[in-house]
Simulated assay, not measured.
Amino acid sequence: MKLAIMAGGPIDHIPEKEELRNLPKDTKWIGIDRGVLTLFNYGIFPEIAVGDFDSVQEEEMKLIDQNVRYIETAQPEKDETDMELALNWAIQQNPSSLYIFGATGKRQDHQIANMYLLIKILEKLPQCQTEIRDRWNQISLYKPGTYQVEQTDFTYISFIPISEDILSLTLIGFKYELKNRHISFGSTLCISNELIEPIGTFSFNNGILMMIRSKD
């Protein structure tokens, strides 16, 4: 199963309609709070709507009730964010891939929390391909192993340690190559690299590594 989540982030951060529609046809959508209305505007009707809907007007909520079969409503005062509630539901579906939109924007607290929630997906569903996407960035996490990355219009590639130590980081096919480097948490050594080959390889043997692909 392939899943995609639309949260309530700013519309101008969300990729163009064509990119959303280019996801596999069997992708099922989860709408979070106002993200449900964003999906409606894109001509997409989600499988489930999740959230406290505190940013949705009464008439808009009626529209959601009429067009979404499953609605999971939470109280505004709760221990988890709406995003975490949606991810809990997604984890239960055991998807093979998960794409998250509307998770970045002006609220840096929400944005950082959403990025760290990727750790939860990585721990619960290590084989699930998971990305946070907006118009300028693609964010994903990796456990130790060897991975390939292809050239796209997201030219800049940064690797950021999420755990205390990344051991034996090796980059092949990049402008700035590395071989068996120890990267500590907080290091900026691997910010803003680029591929010089059609396909590059990165590998490491300890820690959790965040890859951010970006374009201006």
Rank of each mutant, 00 (worst) to 15 (best):
S140C: 09
Q148E: 09
E18P: 02
E194N: 06
N137D: 14
P46N: 08
E60W: 07
Q148V: 05
A90Q: 08
E59W: 11
S140A: 11
K78C: 11
F159A: 03
P24K: 00
L63N: 07
E177N: 09
Q66S: 15
G9T: 09
R69I: 09
D12N: 15
N205C: 10
I32H: 04
E19H: 13
D52F: 11
E59Y: 15
I30P: 04
K124M: 13
L195G: 08
G207D: 03
E197R: 11
L122M: 03
I172H: 11
N67D: 13
C190H: 04
G9P: 05
F185W: 02
K143W: 03
R21N: 13
I44D: 00
R21Q: 14
I212G: 07
A113H: 01
F53I: 11
A90T: 05
L125C: 07
V68T: 07
E16G: 03
S163R: 05
K120I: 04
N180F: 08
L141C: 10
Q151L: 07
I32C: 01
Q129K: 14
Q66F: 07
L87E: 02
L98E: 05
I139M: 11
D33V: 12
E72H: 15
I5G: 04
D134E: 02
F159Q: 05
T201Y: 14
I91N: 15
N114G: 01
D65G: 14
Y147W: 06
E194L: 01
N88V: 10
I212D: 05
W29P: 05
A74K: 13
D165F: 14
T38H: 14
L37V: 00
F101A: 01
T152F: 09
T130R: 13
L189N: 00
E47H: 09
N114A: 03
T152P: 06
E123T: 08
L118F: 02
Q92K: 15
I64V: 12
K28Q: 10
I162E: 04
S203C: 10
P144N: 11
